[in-house]
């Protein structure tokens, strides 16, 4: 395994902290594209840095990376196959409604609006 020296790891840690700060403050601009990039794009960069430098993925045999990324691809498949059903709220002759049943006492957030209203985003 390549001997990087402790300084190297501290440097990576510094970069990670800078990225963390960016990912916190980026979304404060309230521009959706910036939020996406700063929050999620940077998460991928951070994960890449940790996996490569701390987990030393770069010095493992290539198949280690392949097997982990295959599992990730399977998760994408799960998402792609399930999301159309789970996210679909209505069809030609059906609407997925949320019936608010009188729930337990803790359910004081119970004002889930019925799912066929697409304008749920206006809540905030």
């Amino acid at each position: 395994m390549a001997d990087h020296g402790t300084q190297y790891y501290v440097k990576i840690w510094g970069i990670l902290l800078v990225l963390l700060v960016i990912s916190i403050f980026g979304p404060f601009l309230e521009i959706p594209a910036v939020t996406l990039i700063t929050a999620f794009g940077i998460a991928f960069v951070k994960a890449y840095l940790v996996v490569k430098n701390f987990m030393h993925m770069n010095v493992q045999p290539a198949y280690v990376g392949y097997m982990l990324s295959t599992c990730l691809v399977f998760m994408l498949l799960l998402f792609a196959g399930s999301a159309p059903d789970v996210m679909k709220k209505d069809g030609d002759n059906w609407v997925k409604t949320v019936v608010v049943v009188q729930g337990p006492a803790t359910m004081h957030h119970g004002e889930e609006n019925s799912g066929d209203e697409h304008g749920g985003a206006e809540l905030h």
Binding site: M75, G115, G120
Partner: peptide, 17 residues
């Protein structure tokens, strides 16, 4: 974790509220 997060993501994206 992929199972949990995929379930969360698709519900979250399907329910903007």
């Amino acid at each position: 974790f992929g199972g949990v997060l995929a379930s969360y993501l698709m519900q979250r994206m399907g329910n903007p509220d």
